[in-house]
Amino acid sequence: MRPLLNKIFILLFLGTILHLAFIIYYPTFKMWKFDRDIASTSVNKIIHSDKVDSNSRTVIRPSPDLLYSVCAYDASYSPVVITSDVLNTYWAMSFYASNSDNYAIINDMDINSDNVKVYLFGPNSKPTKINDGYAIFSPSNKGAVLIRRFLGNESNIDELYKNQETLTCDTLDN
């Protein structure tokens, strides 16, 4: 009887480990898939989205009230530098780790300037003193930066599209 119980216990234990591994790594898989679909050839490059509509299938539940840009970053070998003009309306730069955690957000209310420069350091980077921008520390070497702009009543939509063009995302080495 006892060997059978031991066997059942071991099988339950291993099943639970497998279940937890799936739960833990599923978000990382989804981020990896997003990187592969969106940015496989464009790491550390900005990709702009047009206004989302019913044909938009990249991200589930997209907001039609936002104009998006995204940079899939890789800070393994060098910090990544992101620059942009900042809008007077809602404008936010959100930083996502490889497990999809939103570990930092900078928005227009945080910035007392018309533009912003962000130095994004990977977990193995040596901290560097930054005098001309924000220093953000990513918990993973890879991840994504998502920029959201509020479309409102779209009276300033040209300005929002122009704002997309001011965005850069590149390694510090370049």
């Binding site: 739960i23 981020m31 539940r61 999809s100 955690d101 939103n102 957000i105």
Partner: peptide, 26 residues
């Protein structure tokens, strides 16, 4: 939904439903 200290189940549920959730107070 987006906070780094969320549970592993919240993280997985958000990934299944949308991936890019914002942390509080955004």
């Amino acid at each position: 939904p987006g906070d780094p200290d969320r549970s592993i189940y919240t993280r997985a549920a958000v990934a299944a439903a949308g991936t890019f959730a914002s942390k509080k107070p955004e």
